[in-house]
Nucleic acid binder design. Structure first.
Length: 587
RNA sequence: GGGGCCGUAGUUCAGCUGGUUAGAACGCCGGCCUGUCACGCCGGAGGUCACGGGUUCGAGCCCCGCCGGCCCCGCCA
């Protein structure tokens, strides 16, 4: 038999057609007389009817069909009898009357049903990934991922980008994440590293005059996993010559508009919101704020500076701050619920959480007597609080207070369901500091990466006030998730050397690690910059997936193993010998 | 490296204060059933309670260890 159609296509207009379908048995309903089979393939489900009076032999065969058997069915498309139409199926108005049946491959009973909304342990799903991927939601997720990439390639192709592949076997570089190493057989004792990103190669491509490059790039980072982090992941990676920041941001906005239109049929609002890094940290306590809801953080340090509340006073005396947030309409929370919020705050690193209820009768709080009515009125005025609102205060050093309030903001939005459904709120975060001081290493490290250009006007501060140097870097945040980041790069050797020096990378070391880049910068490197978007996270959000594993065909477990193939595993003596490697497990 | 949750039938789970033969639903197997689509009805099989120790007259349950899965902190330029 030869397949003529897929299981999702038949409608009323196909009635009378003769066709052959091939697919998997989704379910069998055996009435003794009639047997109904739901036949499933990638495109949908068609009901197949086996009638003992019409084709007794075929009917007898159909009796033995079981879930996930792979079959071919030949027959005629007929209308379903009145009253038996299934509106839940796109093919529900018709059915195929089987005239011929071939069992292409019988299947063992699957360890879990091939359906959405069936709870299955992650263990089983990953071990039998080929069954898990048969489930409609997983199939839809992979299709959606494909649609995203198709839209991206379409867009970039239309904007003059050239897709170039860069090596997977490359050079380990200092800074950044832990590398995956690959031993070299031909060069005993030496190792390649898998790329954490194609960063240097794409910059070299700019020097090569490519002008506009992109790549759907697999990246590898040997760090611990999270719900939104896998050790190998995919970036939509691009780099452009002769552009400024503004051009790149607008280009990405246009690209994402196309992606969302193609994938979701949604017209995104442009331009995207923008926040400077200091603004994001002040108002949302994080550099990846979720702007789908308010709950902004306010600094009330100066307002409460002469209150008699000891906790505030002592914090301010120690150069700390007092941060406040208004939780709208939550003055009715019970003491128990407020205690729970306090525990949440403590879990985030706070010493405590002060609260004030704004009620019709006045202010209610254990600290009313310390703050006093006039000050509370001033506070609630400054915070635009209304009757029925709950004010929350955290007093601590700036860094902790931000972290606590930022974390609290997210947790409160979940707990009180303040996040509107089906909203996609993009925000660009700009003007990151170029450097941050690493306490354990006792030196400055690049906040983005060591090839990021400082703002021109801040360049002179590099040696004198490194903390104040801002970078030409930008992150793209969607619904509180960092989905991309990039920068304008350094394209002059002298500036790059100054930055390496600032990072504590001496000229000799810089030459060894990045010599090829430094040399390339001398041969007419154009000004350039770029960005990389995390495809997996984007796909996650567009799919409403809770885990990055649900948008990756073959993901790793939290211990970075593959339950399907059982990787990683030990190497044979012979392999190791060829690689000039001995293994010894060091505890 | 650290904190937390989980592991009992093929699957998802229940299993009381430690006490008789470890249960339910779905799935599976057999039978009946000609309009079902969560088909229905009758019957049946199915257990290394993850694993290893310990406490106890007695452990699915308590203790210690260990393996595995998940979430988080650190880490992720």
């Amino acid at each position: 038999m030869k397949r003529t159609d897929d299981c999702g296509r038949f409608r009323k207009s196909d009635i009378g057609r003769t066709a052959t379908l091939m697919g998997w048995v989704q379910s069998r309903r055996d009435h003794g007389g009639l047997i109904f089979i739901d036949l499933r393939d990638r495109e949908g489900i068609t009901q197949v009817v086996f009638n003992p009076t019409l084709s007794p032999d075929i009917h007898k065969q159909a009796h033995g069909l079981r879930s996930e058997d792979v079959i071919a069915v030949h027959g005629q498309v007929e209308p379903r009898p009145a009253g038996t139409v299934n509106p839940q199926l796109s093919t529900g108005e018709v059915e195929m009357i089987a005239e011929d049946l071939e069992i292409l491959n019988p299947a063992k009973t699957p360890p879990f049903p091939i359906e959405d909304n069936v709870l299955v342990s992650e263990n089983l799903r990953l071990k039998y990934r080929y069954l898990d991927l048969r489930r409609p939601r997983m199939l839809a997720n992979l299709k959606r991922r494909h649609q995203i990439l198709r839209a991206v390639r379409n867009f970039l192709d239309g904007h003059g980008f050239i897709e170039v592949e860069t090596p997977h076997l490359t050079k380990s570089t200092p800074e950044g994440a832990r590398d995956y190493l690959v031993p070299s057989r031909v060069n005993p004792g030496q190792f390649y590293a898998l790329p954490q990103s194609p960063q240097l190669f794409k910059q070299i491509l700019m020097v090569a005059g490519m002008e506009r490059y992109y790549q759907i790039a697999r990246c590898f980072r040997d760090e611990d996993l999270r719900a939104d982090r896998q050790p190998e992941f995919t970036q939509i990676d691009l780099e452009l010559s002769f552009v400024d920041r503004e051009e790149i941001l607008l280009l990405m906005e246009a690209m994402l508009c196309e992606v969302f239109l193609a994938v979701k049929g949604i017209h995104l609002q442009t331009p995207f919101s923008r926040l400077s890094y200091p603004e994001a940290m002040d108002r949302y306590g994080t550099d990846k704020p979720d702007l789908r809801f308010g709950l902004e953080i306010h600094d009330v340090s100066s307002l409460v500076s002469d209150s008699s509340f000891q906790v505030f006073q002592e914090t301010l005396n120690r150069k700390g701050v007092v941060k406040a947030m208004v939780l709208g309409g939550k003055a009715m929370l019970s003491r128990k619920e407020l205690d729970e919020l306090t525990e949440v705050a403590k879990g985030l690193g706070a010493k405590g959480l002060a609260w004030v209820k704004v009620s019709a009768e006045g202010f209610e709080s254990p600290i009313v007597k310390f703050l006093g009515e006039p000050l509370l009125r001033k506070l609630s005025g400054a915070l635009s609080a209304k009757t029925g609102d709950l004010l929350l205060f955290v007093a601590d050093q700036l860094k902790t207070a931000r972290e606590v309030m930022g974390g609290l903001r997210v947790q409160l939005s979940e707990r009180f369901q303040l996040i509107p459904a089906d909203q996609f709120h993009f925000v660009w975060v700009t003007d990151f500091p170029l450097l941050e001081y690493d306490e354990t290493e006792q030196r400055y490290v690049a906040m983005h990466h060591p090839f990021t250009s400082p703002l021109d006007e801040d360049l002179p501060l590099l040696e004198t006030e490194p903390r104040r140097v801002r970078a030409k870097a930008y992150d793209l945040v969607l619904n509180g998730s960092e989905i991309g980041g990039g920068s304008i790069r350094i394209h002059r050797r002298d500036v790059q050397i100054r930055l390496f020096k600032r990072l504590g990378i001496e000229p000799a070391s810089a030459q060894e690690k990045f010599g090829f880049l430094l040399e390339a910068l001398e041969y007419g490197a154009p000004p350039h910059g770029g960005i990389a978007l995390g495809l997996d996270r984007l796909a996650m959000i567009l799919s409403g997936a809770e885990s990055i594993r649900d948008v990756i065909a073959f993901p790793k477990t939290q211990k970075a193993t593959c339950l399907l193939s059982d990787a990683p595993s030990s190497a044979t003596e012979r392999q190791l010998k060829e690689l000039h490697i001995q293994t010894e497990i060091v505890e």
